[in-house]
Design a protein around this nucleic acid. Structure first.
Lengths: 268, 268
DNA sequence: CGATCGTTTGACGGTGCTCAATCACCGTGG
DNA sequence: CCACGGTGATTGAGCACCGTCAAACGATCG
């Protein structure tokens, strides 16, 4: 199980060298400030619009791997847009158990859930060295009024965040662990497509523990599920580098809300 | 188990007669139209503001029990605010399995997740006879610009919807079925408080099947969990009428991300 | 090269899913 | 008024799957 020797990819470092999930167009790195127009571009607004707000400067925050962007319960004074990198959002149960709610990448918005109560309802932590635009909540109304493009982008981003929120329910509604993992991988694959990258070669930024938490299973079970999907011929797995060999098959597998891989094989 | 004879509440009808979860202040029922000021009131905006938009009339839709407000994938042309009644939001898996994503009551917003793609990403169905304000998406921008109070209310409602979205993750992150149910009941209880009603006497509007789907367990398991919590002395259950006898105890139980009721008893 | 963290794999016991029967409740129609 | 069918809730039996515990292995970094 989990082919070792003949696999073309041996380690994460090698994977990155080989150009797996090659870094997207990295916006030229400005230090502590960013232009509003860059922010809008990251958020996916057509750049041929030249809004009046060109002059606005947006603070940029840098975070190292593992650093937390904001904590659950902290006063929600900023709204963040990811310029570069990847994050996880999570909630801490009172008994210290950490529930991962989702993963977010470039262009996605973080912290909006804090607006209604003035406190963040979730926490966010960087999965790798990252940069975010930090939009002060106090400036939100002004910005939205003066720059309609920003307003629209914000609305779309929030709606997207809502969609993301129900993806976790999608995953957890499956009973079998392998099916949950299959759904997760299909989600990641779709996001790759949205970003104009290969839907088959994934380099997961999060560790098994985070994935397991997101799937709602034990981390040992998550690991076994990777093995099961690999054995079934859907994937090639090497640590965090995952190649989807049979995407259609994986999607069929992901459909099965009830029943396991065995049942699928029996049905065929 | 599940005390029968001496229970003060025998049936749902009796429960309603007895004033359990007595209907909230029902806004005077206007037929096909509603005033914007009423809408704002339902959304929880202080009513002493008298916005310029008083003249706006908002269409009102009525739905009978079980009727669906919108389907998944349908063009998202309206945003809905619940005037009266209760709804469930759900997604249909390709294999026909129905995953309940959450429940929404008076003042809450439905359909916002459709804005980014122009199609509803979830479906919504009435759990009882209900009424909703139907705000045309095309009128959204205008309305928000002309009536700042509406804009703020909308932003708060969306943020609230995001909070609701992660409640399901909260529930599902528990391993034991009884703990999931306990968390759900604590959620419902909290909502009762937010609406200024008794946190102890619940009249659930949804059937066991919907609850089970929301909890991510089989409906037989959901039923057993009600029994278990009742046996443990936290609840009195009579069909959809639930009285929380020991709210603090229930909250303690809800904390246990891992481990079951047995473990709690052993620890004490 | 050692230390630490992350991943994989094993064994075992328990929980919950499936299937199915029974019961309670309700509206209908004879 | 009661017999009847339909829906929803509860309960039971059996077995597979997954969570817990534990150990070995692999990767990464100083």
């Amino acid at each position: 199980m989990m082919q070792q020797g003949q696999s073309p990819i041996q380690s994460r470092r090698m994977a990155e060298r080989a150009g797996w999930y090659g870094r997207p167009v990295t916006p030229a790195g400005t230090a502590g400030q960013g232009k509003l127009s860059d922010l809008l571009q990251v958020m996916g607004v057509a750049s041929d619009e030249r809004p009046a707000g060109e002059a606005y400067a947006i603070p940029v925050r840098r975070l190292r791997t593992g650093a937390s962007l904001f904590h659950e319960g902290a006063p929600a004074d900023h709204l963040y847009v990811i310029q570069l990198g990847n994050f996880k959002t999570l909630r801490m149960a009172e008994d210290g158990y950490e529930q991962v709610l989702g993963f977010a990448g470039m262009g996605e918005i973080l912290g909006f859930d804090g607006l209604s109560k003035g406190q963040y309802q979730t926490a966010a932590a960087a999965l790798e060295d990252s940069r975010v635009y930090a939009v002060p909540v106090r400036a939100l109304d002004t910005l939205r009024q003066r720059v309609p493009a920003f307003d629209r982008a914000l609305q779309a981003a929030v709606s997207r965040e809502l969609r993301r929120a129900c993806e976790i329910a999608d995953v957890m509604s499956a009973v079998a662990a392998e099916v949950r993992l299959a759904r997760f991988l299909v989600q990641v694959s779709s996001q790759m497509v949205e970003r104009g990258q290969s839907p088959r070669r994934l380099l997961l930024r999060m560790n098994r523990r985070d994935i397991a938490s997101y799937l709602g299973v034990a981390h040992a079970t998550a690991s076994r599920s990777f093995g099961a999907l690999a054995d079934a011929g859907y994937l090639k797995v090497d640590n965090r580098a995952v190649e989807i060999v049979d995407l259609d098959g994986l999607k069929v597998c992901a459909r099965n809300t009830r029943g396991t891989l065995e049942d699928m094989a029996a049905r065929a």
